[in-house]
């Protein structure tokens, strides 16, 4: 429970999001995190971003391209949008991501709630650079 309210302030949702993103990208078979509407708005300019953060930045939620983290009462809930390599079995890739993300967030001392994954694209891997 929340007998130690300071804890959730020390570990920000932004930190957990970047940890989850890095863990995901290091998992074999993950091609990338899928950009969301926010990434698109970022390219439109700061005004659009401003509007978005005003409406969605509440309640300890952090969003970045393909990652959404909410921390409530010391429990982190994570959502990841990923693209996977067609040479891998997508469900296995997702389960590995889930396990690794749970493990790495657990090391921060937070309790890990659900880690939900959406597979939004399955593609051949990008071609190796031929120089």
């Amino acid at each position: 429970m929340s007998e130690n309210p300071l804890q959730s302030q020390l570990i920000t949702s932004k930190l957990i999001a970047s940890l989850a993103a890095r863990t995901t990208l290091e998992t074999p078979g993950v091609l990338r995190l899928e950009p969301t509407v926010k990434g698109f708005l970022a390219r439109l300019g700061p005004a659009a971003l401003q509007r978005l953060s005003n409406s969605a930045g509440q309640n300890g939620t952090y969003r970045d391209d393909g990652v959404r983290v909410t921390i409530n009462d010391n429990v982190a809930v994570v959502h990841l949008d990923i693209a996977t390599d067609i040479a891998y079995t997508a469900l296995n890739v997702a389960e590995t991501v889930q396990q690794r993300v749970r493990g790495n967030i657990g090391h921060t001392g937070l309790t890990v709630g659900k880690v939900d994954i959406s597979i939004l694209a399955i593609e051949p891997p990008p071609p190796a650079k031929i120089s």
């Binding site: 051949p124 891997p125 990008p126 071609p127 190796a128 031929i130």
Partner: peptide
């Protein structure tokens, strides 16, 4: 020919 990877050149 390995250069396509993604896109419709693959088909």
């Amino acid at each position: 020919m390995e250069d396509y990877g993604s896109g419709f050149e693959a088909e």
